[in-house]
């Protein structure tokens, strides 16, 4: 074996070994495979007039509870499909199945995020006929999920008031990539040191155009803002495609 390059040219010992090293320049995106599948998903959603949102947050911010309330309040008016991402268990899917059977649970096991391929397979097990909304609850994690496109129209980041008002600056990427931030569990504001104005200022530093909704699924305060936002998004999406 050649000690210079490690290649296994048997003639190198007799002096006629040649190296054909070449430097190849490239612009290949590392996550191109995922991006292409995400674009396929997005195209499919546009064709079927399905509005897809990708929910990002830490574990325990109230994503599933928000989805439950959304199904309860709007389930009679719109057809929903749901994809639940968790490392283990189908607890979240079971909770949502009380409102609709159109739910798929994905267990990522050791994976820390959902990817476009997993969502594509989840679609095989959903009733997509006349579907209005596909809501994808990503794995509870504010870091990795923001890197992997799923084909969604928008990312929505949720932050509960128990997590601290400085969280946007601690985990800025999820806030940079999202278009709506929901500050949840606002009924707990009297009991925690959470400065809403400071939190909004931090979010706007990262993403000045971010839309923000404050709500509580316990008191239902602010929930109408979320309903109105969803309906407006649906109208805009339908008119666009």
């Amino acid at each position: 074996m050649c000690k210079t390059c490690g290649c296994e040219d048997k003639n190198f010992a007799v002096g006629n070994h040649e190296h054909h090293h070449e430097e190849i320049l490239s612009e290949e995106k590392v996550l191109d495979f995922n991006d292409k599948l995400a674009e396929e998903n997005a195209k499919f959603f546009r064709q079927k007039n399905i509005l897809c949102f990708n929910f990002l947050s830490s574990p325990g911010s109230g994503k599933t509870t928000l989805l439950e309330a959304t199904l309860r309040e709007l389930g009679n008016y719109f057809k929903f499909g749901l994809v639940e991402g968790d490392q283990q268990t189908d607890f979240d899917a079971q909770r949502l199945k009380k409102f609709t059977g159109n739910v798929v649970q994905i267990n990522t096991n050791k994976g820390c995020h959902l990817d476009a391929h997993q969502v594509q397979h989840a679609l095989d097990n959903l009733d997509l006929e006349n579907l209005d909304f596909l809501l994808v609850e990503n794995v509870g994690n504010l870091v990795c999920p923001s890197m992997f496109e799923l084909g969604e129209q928008k990312k929505i980041v949720i932050l509960s008031v128990t997590e601290g008002d400085d969280k946007p600056l601690k985990y800025p990427n999820a806030f940079f990539e999202s278009e709506l931030a929901i500050i949840s569990k606002t009924d707990l504001l009297p009991y925690v040191d959470f400065n809403v104005y400071k939190c909004i200022e931090f979010i706007k530093r990262i993403n000045p155009k971010m839309e923000i909704i404050l709500l509580s699924t316990k008191s239902m305060e602010g929930f109408d803002d979320w309903k109105d936002w969803l309906i407006e998004q649906k109208q805009n999406f339908t008119n666009k495609f």
Binding site: C5, C7, H19, H20, H21, E22, E23, I24, L25, S26, E27, E28, K29, V30, L31, K204, R205, I206, P208
Partner: peptide, 19 residues
């Protein structure tokens, strides 16, 4: 705080040395 990012978000293979 309003910016257009020119670089800093990429993740790509830019070069390979091959035989």
């Amino acid at each position: 705080f309003s910016f257009e990012m020119l670089s800093g978000m990429e993740l790509k293979i830019s070069k390979m040395e091959v035989e």
